Deep mutational scan, measured.
Amino acid sequence: LSDEDFKAVFGMTRSAFANLPLWKQQNLKKEKGLF
Results as ranks from 00 to 15, higher is better:
residue 1 L to I: 13
residue 1 L to E: 11
residue 1 L to M: 14
residue 2 S to N: 15
residue 2 S to W: 04
residue 2 S to T: 15
residue 2 S to A: 08
residue 2 S to C: 07
residue 2 S to M: 15
residue 2 S to R: 02
residue 2 S to K: 08
residue 2 S to L: 10
residue 3 D to W: 04
residue 3 D to P: 15
residue 3 D to Y: 05
residue 3 D to T: 12
residue 3 D to A: 12
residue 3 D to E: 15
residue 3 D to N: 10
residue 4 E to M: 15
residue 4 E to C: 11
residue 4 E to D: 13
residue 4 E to F: 14
residue 4 E to T: 15
residue 5 D to I: 04
residue 5 D to T: 09
residue 5 D to H: 15
residue 5 D to P: 01
residue 6 F to K: 00
residue 6 F to M: 08
residue 6 F to I: 02
residue 6 F to A: 03
residue 6 F to T: 05
residue 6 F to P: 03
residue 6 F to D: 04
residue 6 F to S: 03
residue 7 K to H: 08
residue 7 K to R: 07
residue 7 K to G: 05
residue 7 K to W: 07
residue 7 K to C: 07
residue 7 K to T: 09
residue 7 K to S: 03
residue 7 K to Q: 13
residue 7 K to L: 12
residue 8 A to M: 10
residue 8 A to K: 14
residue 8 A to H: 10
residue 8 A to R: 12
residue 8 A to E: 10
residue 8 A to F: 10
residue 8 A to Q: 13
residue 8 A to G: 07
residue 9 V to T: 12
residue 9 V to S: 06
residue 9 V to I: 09
residue 9 V to F: 05
residue 9 V to Q: 14
residue 9 V to C: 07
residue 9 V to G: 04
residue 9 V to E: 12
residue 10 F to Y: 12
residue 10 F to K: 02
residue 10 F to G: 02
residue 10 F to L: 04
residue 11 G to V: 00
residue 11 G to R: 02
residue 11 G to T: 04
residue 11 G to P: 01
residue 11 G to L: 01
residue 11 G to Q: 05
residue 12 M to N: 00
residue 12 M to D: 00
residue 12 M to L: 08
residue 12 M to G: 01
residue 12 M to H: 07
residue 13 T to Y: 01
residue 13 T to N: 08
residue 13 T to I: 00
residue 13 T to W: 00
residue 13 T to G: 10
residue 14 R to V: 04
residue 14 R to E: 10
residue 14 R to P: 09
residue 14 R to N: 02
residue 14 R to T: 05
residue 15 S to H: 12
residue 15 S to W: 06
residue 15 S to K: 09
residue 15 S to Q: 12
residue 15 S to V: 07
residue 15 S to D: 07
residue 15 S to F: 06
residue 15 S to C: 07
residue 15 S to E: 13
residue 16 A to Q: 13
residue 16 A to P: 01
residue 16 A to N: 14
residue 16 A to D: 12
residue 16 A to T: 13
residue 16 A to L: 05
residue 16 A to Y: 04
residue 17 F to H: 05
residue 17 F to A: 02
residue 17 F to I: 01
residue 17 F to P: 02
residue 17 F to C: 01
residue 17 F to S: 02
residue 18 A to Y: 04
residue 18 A to R: 06
residue 18 A to S: 13
residue 18 A to T: 12
residue 18 A to L: 11
residue 18 A to E: 15
residue 18 A to Q: 10
residue 18 A to N: 13
residue 19 N to A: 12
residue 19 N to V: 07
residue 19 N to P: 01
residue 19 N to Q: 13
residue 19 N to R: 12
residue 19 N to M: 13
residue 19 N to Y: 09
residue 20 L to E: 02
residue 20 L to N: 03
residue 20 L to S: 02
residue 20 L to M: 08
residue 21 P to N: 02
residue 21 P to H: 00
residue 22 L to Q: 15
residue 22 L to S: 13
residue 22 L to K: 02
residue 22 L to E: 14
residue 22 L to I: 13
residue 22 L to C: 09
residue 22 L to H: 14
residue 22 L to D: 14
residue 23 W to Q: 15
residue 23 W to F: 06
residue 23 W to M: 09
residue 23 W to K: 14
residue 23 W to T: 14
residue 23 W to N: 15
residue 23 W to H: 15
residue 24 K to L: 10
residue 24 K to F: 08
residue 24 K to P: 00
residue 24 K to M: 12
residue 24 K to G: 03
residue 24 K to S: 06
residue 25 Q to M: 02
residue 25 Q to G: 01
residue 25 Q to Y: 00
residue 25 Q to R: 05
residue 25 Q to D: 00
residue 25 Q to L: 00
residue 25 Q to V: 03
residue 26 Q to D: 14
residue 26 Q to A: 13
residue 26 Q to C: 13
residue 26 Q to R: 09
residue 26 Q to S: 08
residue 26 Q to P: 01
residue 26 Q to G: 08
residue 26 Q to N: 14
residue 26 Q to I: 06
residue 26 Q to M: 11
residue 27 N to Q: 15
residue 27 N to K: 13
residue 28 L to R: 01
residue 28 L to D: 00
residue 28 L to P: 01
residue 28 L to V: 07
residue 28 L to A: 06
residue 29 K to G: 07
residue 29 K to A: 11
residue 30 K to M: 11
residue 30 K to P: 05
residue 30 K to E: 11
residue 31 E to K: 05
residue 31 E to P: 03
residue 31 E to R: 07
residue 31 E to M: 06
residue 31 E to G: 06
residue 31 E to D: 05
residue 31 E to S: 11
residue 32 K to S: 09
residue 32 K to M: 09
residue 32 K to W: 03
residue 32 K to H: 06
residue 32 K to A: 09
residue 32 K to I: 05
residue 33 G to V: 05
residue 33 G to Q: 11
residue 33 G to N: 12
residue 33 G to A: 12
residue 33 G to E: 09
residue 33 G to L: 06
residue 33 G to H: 07
residue 33 G to P: 11
residue 34 L to C: 09
residue 34 L to K: 10
residue 34 L to E: 15
residue 34 L to T: 14
residue 34 L to I: 11
residue 34 L to W: 12
residue 35 F to Y: 11
residue 35 F to L: 15
residue 35 F to K: 14
